[in-house]
Design a protein around this nucleic acid. Structure first.
Length: 444
DNA sequence: TGAAATGTTGGGGCG
DNA sequence: ACGCCCCAACATTTC
């Protein structure tokens, strides 16, 4: 004898509070069975060994599972292909609907389309909701209905569209009794999915550091300070609510609010221009004659370029899965402009290493640095790594933390000359544009 | 959310 | 006294 239920499918929204899709599931009139699927096809591409992001998800799911257990319910966690897992579950249980939150990355959209087709065949509703952003898709577009390409204009419209309506929380905790009452199910171990625990179970806290946010614009560029929120990881996996953060940002600091709007800007860009996932937003830069020298890329990855601020950043990334935002810009600019290595190489490296990796933000910011992106830094803006270090790490506190041998014979000399590299970058970018425009004229 | 090159201004030394 | 030069400081332009 089976009771009809609905599923809530956790993806990038790993929290029980203020969760749009979960709220709608809990108020559907049917008991809710929450599920999470470790996507085997994605995880199998990852190298075996420790993976901090998988561990973070695993740890978070354990917490959710315990909370549900205390309510007499459970979280069902599976390791497999989403479609197959859903097929099995819909055979085992009488599922009336599947609830989830919107996911905007191209691969996620394709996955959800397949799931939607399957569920439709079975006569099961697939109900999805906006949750990870304040405004999605076409909610903030120009008056003529086309997407913005300039951040300042987008922000203005975003701000004028904002109202309390968009920021109010979904009171999921009021409906906790609507989880399906059932026995606890175990969560697959990291080992069973091909990973080994790293032994480091510490992650940045999911609370907004109010003091840091209040003074954000005065401290955000100083990598030696803890002057940034470090909430990227939590925004990525939905362990904080975007609505709650935005409410606080409105209250505390419009500059920091701007960072949240940048996040939505790049998500909007990826949604409307999915080609950016693999190609430059500005297609003229497909004509860039990247040098792409592997041994140079390796030195950048390892943090042995001979430019201390770049090396400090890369070593921080390699050691912790985090890099301070100012240093991300300097390191990215160096790879792209000084070494003339395709921004996609750097993008892929950050994707592999960053705990807070988010496709839209990573892609948007790399393209911003490379000058290939939407409303990007102009190509001729070339960071001087030494000037940047003097400005933002005057006393070399950050540099010495990550590059202790700086100033000794153990530290390499600069792998490329700044003045030379700068000139070379300017010439190469200009040549790419000339080529693109020449071809465009031929086609007329 | 640059940096470098070039241009302008104005104070002070000096003949 | 005055013009000239130097050059730092600041502003503008260019990449």
């Amino acid at each position: 004898m089976q009771v009809p239920i609905v599923l809530f499918w956790f993806r990038r929204d790993l929290r029980l509070t203020d969760n749009a899709g979960l709220y709608h599931a809990l108020t559907s009139g049917f008991p809710v069975l929450p599920i999470f699927i470790f996507d085997q096809e994605i995880l199998d591409q990852f190298p075996s060994g420790p993976d901090r992001r998988v561990e973070f998800i695993h740890q978070t799911l354990s917490g959710i599972s315990q909370e549900l257990q205390a309510l007499g319910s459970t979280l069902v966690v599976k390791y497999g292909k989403p479609l197959e897992v859903l097929q099995t579950l819909t055979e085992q249980c009488e599922v009336r609907a599947v609830y989830a939150n919107h996911d905007y990355e191209p691969a996620a959209i394709a996955r959800d389309q397949k799931v939607a087709n399957f569920l439709e065949e079975k006569g099961i509703a697939f109900r999805t909701f906006k949750d990870q952003v304040i405004f999605e898709k076409k909610e903030v577009v120009k008056d003529n209905g086309t997407p913005y390409r300039v951040f300042g204009a987008y922000r203005k419209k975003w701000m004028s569209t904002l109202s309390d309506f968009y920021l109010s929380s979904y009171p999921t905790e009021k409906y906790r009794q609507n989880f399906l009452q059932t026995d606890t199910q175990p969560i697959p171990s990291l080992e069973s999915m091909g990973f080994t625990p790293s032994g480091d179970t510490l992650f940045p806290p999911a609370q907004l550091p109010e003091t840091i946010i209040r003074t954000y614009e005065f401290t955000r560029d100083l990598p030696a300070l803890a002057g940034t929120s470090r909430l990227g990881l939590h925004l990525r996996f939905g362990t904080v609510s975007a609505r709650e953060l935005t409410r606080k940002a409105v209250e505390l600091n419009s500059v920091w609010l701007g960072e949240l709007i940048w996040r939505e800007f790049f998500m909007m860009i990826l949604f409307h221009f999915p080609h950016v996932a693999s190609r430059p937003f500005n297609l003229e830069y497909e004509h860039m004659a990247w040098i792409n020298q592997e041994d140079q890329f390796e030195r950048w990855c390892n943090g042995t370029t001979g430019y201390p601020i770049v090396d400090a950043g890369m070593r921080e990334l390699n050691a912790t899965g985090f890099m301070h935002n100012r240093v991300r810009m300097i390191a990215a600019s160096f790879l792209v402009k000084h070494l003339l290595i395709d921004y996609r190489w750097g993008e892929a490296y950050f994707a592999q290493k960053l705990l807070d990796y988010d496709m839209a933000a990573n892609n948007g910011n790399w393209q911003w640095c490379a000058g290939t992106g939407c409303d990007a830094a102009p190509y001729f803006r070339v960071f001087n790594p030494e000037t940047q270090a003097k400005k933002f790490d005057k006393h070399k506190e950050y540099i010495k933390k990550w590059v202790p041998e700086v100033g000794t014979s153990a530290y390499p000399s600069p792998m490329v000359d700044h003045a030379f590299s700068r000139e070379r970058a300017l010439k190469t970018y200009k040549a790419a544009l000339n080529k693109a425009r020449g071809i465009a004229e031929d086609n007329r």
